[in-house]
């Protein structure tokens, strides 16, 4: 934190008397500033390019694109709803599964239940998962996760088939495997940010709670977690942002069938996964435009979630 505070000596750093080096300094300052502004330009550029290419579809379908369910390439009928639905459902399933697990990881690696020489490697192990490319996780999803979930899905359908979420027999790929794989992928994010947030909760809060006679777990549940709650929400939203945009792993296990269904055991599709499977082959401007329109929706969605997340986590002074 200390380095981000304004230093009283800072103004001295701008003084440079030597005229020759002054010129070099000025030139370099302009260059550095220009490049830094380029970062803003890239973000604006992404917005502009996606918007421009989406124009044919925006002009043709308008806002009705958002709630239309048609996706027929030969007859050029396009609608986003099944893909928005799939994206939101898989991300929510992922988040719901990942949150308790991530909290367990965050608590276990920030409290002193285990000695530091065990805690640190365990935290590292969880983070290792974040380094594995998503296409490899997708491969694992096809050959390990789907066969593992299939009997569970069958059992759920046999015994709880009356419940809408399990109302169809499992097809193998589908919304549930996609949700589970997203949970696996966002646990490292949520766990590490939550852990950082938990470690910066003021020590006095913990001491006060313990002094009043609370056990360690009562302190965690009644003091630490409530104090860290905004940061944990921020961490979850960072995870959600990742889940919304995740492409390959989801595309490989979701079955790529754009439909709206109550059953998690049924096939589905998401915006990123549709982009991955159709973009390279799209030819008509309306088809490309519709895909770009979807990319725009995804972009806006993730932008909102991530801006909120960064602002929430920043309250704690934790770097994302």
């Amino acid at each position: 934190m200390a380095h981000s505070a304004t230093h009283p000596e800072d103004h001295l750093l701008t003084v440079s008397e030597n005229p020759r080096s002054n010129l070099l300094d000025r030139g370099f300052t302009v260059l550095v500033q220009g490049v830094a502004l380029l970062v803003i330009a890239i973000l604006l550029g992404i917005t502009a390019v996606v918007l421009a290419y989406a124009q044919p579809a925006i002009a043709h379908f308008g806002l009705a694109f958002l709630w239309s369910t048609a996706w027929d390439v030969p007859s050029l009928q396009f609608g986003a709803l099944p893909y928005i639905f799939g994206t939101l459902v898989t991300s929510s399933v992922g988040l719901i599964l990942a949150l308790p697990i991530s909290m367990a990881v965050a608590i276990l690696t920030s409290e002193n239940f285990l000695p530091a020489f065990v805690r640190e490697p365990l935290a590292f192990l969880v983070q290792l998962l974040a380094a594995i490319p998503s296409v490899v996780i997708g491969l694992w999803g096809i050959y390990v996760l789907i066969p593992f979930l299939l009997p569970i899905g069958t059992w759920l359908n046999n015994n709880f088939g009356w419940f809408p979420l399990f109302s169809t027999p499992p097809a193998g790929p589908g919304l549930l495997p996609a949700g589970v794989i997203l949970a696996v992928m966002i646990i490292p994010t949520i766990a590490s940010v939550s852990r950082d947030v938990l470690t910066v909760v003021p020590k006095e809060l913990r001491s006060a709670s313990m002094a009043l006679g609370a056990t360690q777990w009562e302190t965690i549940l009644a003091v630490m977690l409530p104090a860290a709650a905004p940061g944990v929400v921020g961490a979850s939203m960072l995870g959600l942002g990742r889940a919304l945009g995740e492409t390959m792993a989801v595309s490989m296990v979701i079955g790529n069938s754009g439909q709206i269904t109550a059953s998690l055991l049924d096939l589905g599709n998401t915006i990123p996964s549709l982009l991955a499977s159709q973009f390279a082959e799209a030819e008509s401007p309306l088809h490309i435009g519709s895909l770009m329109y979807l990319a725009l929706i995804l972009f806006v969605l993730t932008l909102m979630v991530n801006v909120a997340a960064v602002l929430l986590v920043r309250v704690f002074g934790v770097k994302v």
Binding site: I46, L244, F279, T302, V310
Partner: peptide, 12 residues
């Protein structure tokens, strides 16, 4: 914010 833009959007 840029670091959180989905990679598929960057590809597009």
């Amino acid at each position: 914010v840029l670091s959180a833009v989905p990679s598929v959007v960057v590809g597009v």
